[in-house]
Simulated scan of single mutants.
Amino acid sequence: MAMSGGRDDGEPMMEMNTTPLIDVMLVLLIMFIITLPIPTHAVKVDLPVNSKTPQNPIDSEKNKVTIAADGAIAWNGSPVNELTLRQYLDTTAGMNPEPELHFQPDPAAKYEVVDRVLAVIKRSNVTKLGFIGNEQYRNDF
């Protein structure tokens, strides 16, 4: 690194010597680079398992529609909305022989949700419908 030697006329040098400052900055930079942890290039990712046969949510013998207390609708244990429920019901109505449909609302479920689901079931022309869990109400009346 170059250092200025001043002028020949004997006047004092008015410039600051930056060489030691640059040297200290370079040493600090090297120390920070050395103390950095070694980056790991392996990233663990849980990938989905590809099954050879697609999962069919419709059982050929019996299917179960449940309604939870919060109003969530489930088809064979997996949550669905009313449109998907209608698609599943239309598929089962066209099967030969038609599978049974078990309907089980939670006792704390709102009547409005139960009524909407029953209307979807009626519009899909399902002929084999059974209410599951009615025995829990036998002592209420």
Score class of each variant (00 low, 15 high):
111 Y>P: 09
45 V>C: 03
71 G>C: 08
68 A>W: 00
94 G>I: 00
40 T>D: 11
5 G>L: 06
20 P>K: 08
72 A>L: 06
27 V>D: 13
94 G>D: 06
83 L>V: 13
16 M>T: 10
31 M>H: 06
80 V>S: 03
81 N>Q: 05
65 V>P: 01
124 S>W: 04
73 I>H: 02
137 Y>M: 04
44 K>P: 00
116 R>M: 07
15 E>G: 03
29 L>R: 03
95 M>Y: 05
136 Q>P: 00
48 P>H: 01
29 L>G: 13
25 M>F: 12
131 F>R: 14
13 M>R: 13
103 F>N: 03
136 Q>S: 09
133 G>Y: 03
58 I>F: 06
99 P>H: 04
136 Q>Y: 04
106 D>Q: 06
26 L>T: 05
70 D>N: 14
63 N>L: 04
95 M>Q: 13
106 D>H: 11
98 E>V: 13
65 V>T: 03
86 R>T: 12
63 N>V: 04
47 L>A: 00
19 T>I: 11
115 D>H: 13
137 Y>T: 04
83 L>G: 09
140 D>C: 02
64 K>E: 12
85 L>W: 00
29 L>F: 09
102 H>S: 11
64 K>L: 15
132 I>H: 14
86 R>D: 14
14 M>V: 07
98 E>Y: 03
76 N>K: 07
53 T>N: 14
24 V>E: 15
110 K>M: 00
109 A>S: 10
38 I>M: 09
62 K>G: 12
45 V>Y: 07
70 D>T: 09
37 P>E: 02
63 N>F: 01
101 L>Q: 04
98 E>C: 09
5 G>W: 04
91 T>M: 08
49 V>A: 08
93 A>E: 06
15 E>I: 07
110 K>W: 00
82 E>H: 02
80 V>I: 08
131 F>L: 15
124 S>R: 04
71 G>P: 00
60 S>P: 13
35 T>G: 06
84 T>A: 13
31 M>F: 14
102 H>W: 10
11 E>M: 14
103 F>Q: 03
125 N>C: 01
90 D>F: 08
30 I>D: 04
16 M>H: 05
24 V>D: 15
51 S>N: 08
38 I>H: 10
12 P>I: 02
124 S>I: 01
116 R>Q: 12
40 T>L: 05
117 V>F: 01
122 K>H: 09
101 L>V: 06
27 V>R: 12
61 E>M: 09
72 A>E: 10
64 K>A: 06
50 N>T: 10
131 F>N: 09
114 V>A: 07
64 K>C: 08
22 I>A: 14
140 D>I: 12
135 E>I: 11
139 N>F: 15
97 P>A: 03
122 K>T: 12
60 S>H: 14
11 E>G: 09
124 S>N: 03
6 G>N: 00
137 Y>H: 02
60 S>T: 15
119 A>H: 04
91 T>V: 10
131 F>W: 13
27 V>G: 11
74 A>R: 09
8 D>P: 05
45 V>I: 15
49 V>Q: 08
100 E>Y: 10
32 F>Y: 06
137 Y>D: 03
81 N>D: 15
18 T>Q: 05
